[in-house]
């Protein structure tokens, strides 16, 4: 059972920010994490601020910048033909999240606000250099995605703040992919997930690994490897070595740390071969 709680659906951002400043208030979007945690007794909000009535959170644009509002659900991201063209890796990632019914509720912004190290939308947003646009008592601020997620279930959101949207200011062109290791085929959280983008013209290779540290890990130094190593198998080996130096996986219910390391090597190599050849 969900414990008694107050509920408020603001019609304006001002009202929302005001409500979110009260004691123990939580924003409610899709609710697919929050309501589960409430039911399981993990979270005990006193006030749910339902942000689905806020206009500002319904934005969705793909011309030039990509803008995804806080109310945009994952099935929308999968189905939008224009986004599929400009940034297919987002839809690919979204398709691996939960089930069809849950994706009708679950939002991209919620996925990163939940800040699970295994968040499936995060690696793609890291390689795309996304920014999180936050509104609060002090006005609006833009936070790079890798500064937004700060730890296990931790973000840089402050009291009273709400995420309006995620922006990808310069959608990178190149070959992208998202790969996910899970315990069984079907719907499961990631044991390891990886996203990447490669562009031979600009010499950029970006690889991000999820579920193997307290936050997703964007590899540093991949551009140099990409520019200097022409053989794709050798490149895959080197990037995977770099990955193993950069992650710090733990043992948990889904996998041992050792297995995570092994799978990181396998999935990073597979990713590099996919996007670099």
């Amino acid at each position: 059972m969900i414990k008694p709680v107050a509920y408020f659906k603001p019609g304006s951002l001002k009202e929302a920010v005001e409500a979110l400043q009260t004691e123990n208030a939580w924003p409610l979007a899709g609710g697919t994490d929050l309501l589960v945690n409430m039911r399981n007794g993990v979270e005990h909000p006193d006030l749910l601020v339902d942000i689905k009535g806020l206009e500002e959170l319904n934005v969705f644009e793909v011309d030039g910048k990509i803008i995804i509002g806080g109310n945009i659900n994952l099935n929308f991201i999968i189905d939008d033909a224009r986004l599929r063209k400009v940034c297919p890796v987002l839809g690919q990632s979204a398709l691996t999240v939960a089930t069809y019914q849950l994706r009708n509720r679950a939002t991209l912004v919620g996925n990163i606000c939940n800040a699970s190290p295994a968040a499936d939308m995060a690696p793609a947003l890291y390689v795309m250099e996304a920014e999180v646009v936050v509104s609060g008592p002090q006005g609006e601020r833009h936070v790079p995605i890798n500064e937004f997620i700060t730890g296990v279930k931790k973000t840089s959101l402050k009291k009273g703040e709400v995420v309006l949207r995620v922006e990808i200011p310069n959608p990178k062109v190149g070959k992208t992919a998202f790969l996910k290791k899970q315990r069984y085929r079907g719907h499961d959280l990631a044991t390891v997930n990886v996203a990447g983008i490669a562009n031979p013209d600009t010499g950029t290779l970006r690889v991000c690994i999820g579920a193997c540290a307290v936050t997703p890990v964007l590899l540093k130094g991949t551009d140099e490897l990409y520019k200097s190593i022409k053989d794709v198998d050798e490149l895959a080996d080197k990037v995977s070595e770099l990955a193993l130096q950069s992650i710090s996986p733990i043992d948990d219910v889904r996998s041992s740390a050792e297995y995570r390391r092994d799978m990181t090597a396998v999935y990073v190599k597979r990713l590099v071969r996919t996007i670099c050849s």
Partner: peptide, 15 residues
């Protein structure tokens, strides 16, 4: 028009 798991929707949200 969209399928949802009704255990994860509040009645209030269905207003």
């Amino acid at each position: 028009g969209k399928t949802v798991t009704s255990c994860l929707v509040l009645a209030a949200e269905a207003d």
